[in-house]
């Protein structure tokens, strides 16, 4: 059974997995893995051509065209509002999309987004007509501010990029879900294994964005299948409604009509 479809900035999607295109052992593995993931959105980036390698961009472009996915360009490596805004504009022209995964880093050690610059860059890009997917921390007030600016989608981290530590602060993520019920929320970054993704989806997150967990698995293609199934399972569980936890045991076998001496109340 497949979980319900969803909508991202007016675009209906079936898969709830966004997958990155980086870090794979080879282009072939990347292609096979992305196909196995059944993702419909892939993240991409851009860089200045080097004199010795002016054609690699064309080769990469041919591959992503073959995948026929929606493209979500990022502003990776930007540490200022000016850089991020400029990169977003370049990405819009290059990839022919107004979607942008906005990354404005504040710390190079844990690649933590700078909340102040993130808000400023988001404001500018929304005014410039972009559909912004901010990579953000799980701070509620920051996320509320981004929503007020017009973001329909937010992508809080589960843990720092590439660490595979899973959801370090489930309470904060649960709070975001409860307080921002109308927003589309994806956990972006920090997912290490399929059960991390299940946990986020069971909390009511709409989707997952990941890259390293699949690309650096021993068998990326197999791991992509695992994540696709896990994300679907987590969403189905959320839609089905998880039972509440209890402190005391409750028998699952009915006690009605049992002899009185077998009933233990």
């Amino acid at each position: 059974m497949k979980a319900s479809n969803w909508t991202v900035y007016g675009q209906e999607l079936g898969s709830r997995l966004f997958i990155g295109t980086a870090l794979y052992p080879s282009p072939k593995v990347m292609m096979d893995t992305i196909r196995a993931s059944r993702a419909e959105v892939i993240t991409v980036s851009l860089r200045r051509q080097t004199p010795t390698d002016s054609k690699s961009g064309d080769k990469f472009w041919q591959m992503i065209e073959e995948l026929d996915c929606h493209l979500l360009p990022n502003t990776a490596g930007c540490y200022s509002v000016k850089e991020a805004v400029k990169t977003a504009h370049m990405a819009r022209e290059l990839f022919d999309t107004d979607w942008v995964k906005l990354e404005v880093m504040g710390d190079s050690y844990n690649l933590q987004p700078d909340p102040f610059m993130l808000v400023e860059a988001t404001k500018i890009l929304i005014e410039d007509g972009f559909k912004v997917f901010p990579y953000t921390t799980d701070d509620l007030v920051l996320c509320q501010k981004l929503a007020e600016l017009g973001c329909e989608v937010l992508m809080p981290w589960g843990a720092p990029i590439g660490t595979g530590q899973g959801l370090l602060n489930p309470y904060a993520l649960k709070t975001l879900r409860e307080r921002l019920p109308e927003l589309t929320l994806l956990v972006d970054a920090g997912i290490g294994k399929p059960s991390d993704a299940v946990q986020a989806m069971e909390l009511g997150f709409d989707g997952i964005l990941l890259n390293t967990a699949v690309a650096e698995a021993l068998e990326p293609e197999t791991m992509a299948y695992a994540f696709a199934d896990a994300i679907n399972a987590g969403r189905l569980a959320y839609e089905a409604g998880v039972m509440p936890k209890r402190d005391n045991a409750k028998p699952s076998t009915p006690t009605l009509d049992q002899p009185i001496w077998q009933q233990h109340g």
């Binding site: 870090l23 690699s56 064309d58 990469f60 990776a76 990029i161």
Partner: peptide
Amino acid sequence: VDIMSPISGG
């Protein structure tokens, strides 16, 4: 003048 090309990204 900068010429920017597509690359992989996460």
